[in-house]
């Protein structure tokens, strides 16, 4: 069984709006008074964090990553154009990827639900081959997106843009005085790209990180977008791009109960098998995942999607994730 690797300093939480669990997590980790928050995933509402501040009852400084980069782009036409070109290319790539996925996933779904009671081994071989085809499409997409981002980041060399370098330095200095970093959810692509552009994690080391929803997604090796019940389209989960990879072998699924058909064993099995060896973990309200030396020490409300189509509630202790 794959071992899920959650470093000791990382705390993965479920959505915070209805059942906030951040403060107990901070208390358990004995976090001191000054913590940094990232609410850039909220875009224009970045920094509107009165509820969060009141909940954590600690001195909070928001890094304002959304606003800082808006300012950088506003002051630099070249960068703004480069950003627009990047998103235009990614949009085209995403449309092509979705078309590839729709065919490959349809084949995998058909085979996962086709059994005639004999020669099961042959059905399994064919099913595995279909899921492999999906994995190849995923892998190629990941590479193509990473190439586009890499070429953009070459243009975003902070030394070429004094304003960007200044913002990165301010963030580095702010973080020096903070004992923990809290990454809120929101728009996952904006969160990831702005954290990268501003080098938020470059000097953070192994100080504690508390992350929920999209904030937890960006810490994973790959960011998987998912929704089984969209109003338009088939609901094919897709890779956005690589995340920071601070946790390993993990795909987190915030709001899984609302977004996924967890009562459909075929869809659960396909999801789990497609992204293996990473483990797909549902993070609903109240969820919390913490580990010490890779042994889960605190688990609440988190479930694992298994390759046999079942959804298993995670338990504290043991590395069963």
């Amino acid at each position: 069984m794959t071992t899920l690797h959650i470093p000791d300093h990382v705390h993965i939480l479920g959505p915070q709006r209805l059942r906030p669990t951040l403060r107990p997590a901070l208390d358990r980790a004995q976090i001191g008074d000054r913590i940094a928050t990232i609410t850039g995933g909220w875009e224009e509402r970045e920094g509107e964090d009165e509820e969060l501040r009141s909940h954590v009852a600690r001195d909070v400084v928001d890094l304002r990553i959304w606003g800082r980069l808006e300012g950088v782009f506003a002051a630099n036409q070249e960068l703004r154009t480069a950003m627009q070109e990047r998103y235009d290319r990614i949009r085209v790539l995403r449309r092509l990827y979705q078309r590839q996925l729709s065919h490959a996933l349809a084949s995998a779904r058909e085979l996962l639900t086709t059994h005639d009671g004999w020669c099961e081994d042959l059905y399994e071989l064919a099913t595995e081959a279909s899921i492999d085809a999906v994995r190849i499409i995923d892998r190629k997409h990941r590479e193509h997106v990473a190439d586009i981002h890499a070429s953009f980041r070459e243009r975003l060399d902070p030394s070429r843009y004094p304003e960007l370098a200044r913002q990165r330095e301010e963030i580095r200095a702010t973080l020096e005085s903070c004992s923990a970093l809290c990454i809120a959810g929101g728009h996952v692509a904006i969160l990831l790209n702005r954290m990268r552009a501003l080098g938020v994690l470059d000097h953070w080391g192994t100080r504690p990180i508390f992350a929920w929803s999209a904030g937890a997604m960006v810490l994973c090796p790959d960011i998987v977008l998912f929704h089984d019940r969209p109003p338009q389209g088939a609901g094919d989960a897709e890779l956005l791009e690589p995340g920071f990879g601070i946790v390993q072998n993990l795909v987190v699924l915030p709001h899984a109960k609302r977004r996924l058909r967890l009562d459909d064993p075929m869809r659960v099995a396909l999801f789990a098998r497609r992204f293996a060896p990473a483990r797909a973990i549902a993070l609903d309200d109240g969820a919390c995942l913490e580990a010490r030396q890779n042994v889960l020490t605190h688990v609440d409300g988190s479930s694992r999607l298994d390759e046999d189509g079942s959804v298993v509630l995670l338990q504290t202790s043991g590395s069963a994730a």
Partner: peptide, 18 residues
Amino acid sequence: MREGLSWLFPGPLWLVYE
């Protein structure tokens, strides 16, 4: 209404996880 409005004005459900 759901089908029509979400088709004319698609929301950010694939990218936003609050």
